[in-house]
Amino acid sequence: MFKEKVTSLLDKALEEKPSLFLIDFTVENNNTIRVVLDGDEGVDLQDCMDVSRAIEHNLDREEEDFSLEVTSAGAASPLELPRQYKKNIGRKLMVKIADEELEGNLTQATEDKITLEWKAREPKPVGKGKVTVQKKREIAFSDIHEAKVILKF
């Protein structure tokens, strides 16, 4: 009952802010509510406060005690949803698939796959030495074990 009410309040809060989307949501046995958000243009403190208030102000602590934590997906958090990939087009990603780890620029993201592009040094087809070649690979979401944005400082 409590979780259903919180879910309803969270859904309503997200409807009011269509650029935000849910990454993770849990209600533990001790009524600890955890909400992790992301957004098409990022998530700022005001967004977290608005969602938190939309939930907290509609629950009665006299009926049921709870704790509430609303956060944004961290910059180093793995990408989980296709919508997160779309907002990161043009950025460099590290993608782990079955037996390899790829680093490249995310150039495209659809509902079922991404496209990574990168430069690599390979031996010349004829003669000695190496040549720089442009590589491109499409990767289905189902093949991705983990993907993170590579941050530059």
Results as ranks from 00 to 15, higher is better:
Met1Trp: 03
Phe2Glu: 11
Lys3Ile: 09
Glu4Arg: 11
Thr7Glu: 14
Thr7Lys: 14
Thr7Pro: 00
Asp11Tyr: 01
Lys12Asn: 13
Glu15Gln: 14
Glu16Tyr: 04
Glu16Trp: 02
Ser19Tyr: 13
Leu22Arg: 03
Leu22Met: 08
Leu22Ser: 07
Ile23Cys: 08
Asp24Val: 00
Val27Gln: 12
Asn29His: 13
Asn29Trp: 12
Asn31Tyr: 07
Asn31Asp: 10
Asn31Val: 02
Thr32Met: 09
Thr32Gly: 01
Ile33Tyr: 00
Arg34Pro: 02
Arg34Thr: 15
Val36Glu: 05
Val36Gln: 10
Leu37Tyr: 05
Gly39Val: 13
Asp40Leu: 15
Gln46Asp: 15
Cys48Met: 10
Arg53Gly: 01
Ala54Met: 02
Ala54Phe: 06
Ala54Arg: 10
Asn58Asp: 08
Leu59Gln: 06
Glu64Gln: 12
Asp65His: 12
Phe66Pro: 06
Glu69His: 03
Glu69Val: 08
Val70Ala: 03
Thr71Cys: 08
Ala73Ser: 14
Ala75Gly: 13
Ser77Glu: 15
Leu81Trp: 02
Leu81Cys: 04
Gln84Lys: 02
Gly90Arg: 10
Lys92Ile: 15
Lys92Cys: 01
Leu93Glu: 07
Met94Phe: 01
Val95Arg: 06
Ala98Tyr: 06
Asp99Leu: 03
Leu106Ile: 04
Leu106Gly: 09
Leu106Ala: 03
Leu106Phe: 04
Thr107His: 05
Glu111Gln: 09
Lys113Asn: 14
Thr115Ile: 13
Glu117Val: 12
Glu117Pro: 05
Lys119Phe: 04
Ala120Ile: 11
Glu122Ser: 08
Pro123Gly: 01
Pro123Met: 00
Gly127Trp: 10
Lys128Pro: 05
Gly129Phe: 11
Lys130Gln: 15
Val131Met: 15
Thr132Met: 10
Val133Glu: 00
Lys135Ser: 06
Lys135Met: 10
Lys136Ala: 04
Arg137Asp: 05
Glu138Gly: 15
Ile139Pro: 06
Phe141Tyr: 14
Ile144Thr: 12
Glu146His: 00
Glu146Met: 14
Val149Ile: 12
Ile150Pro: 01
Phe153Ser: 09
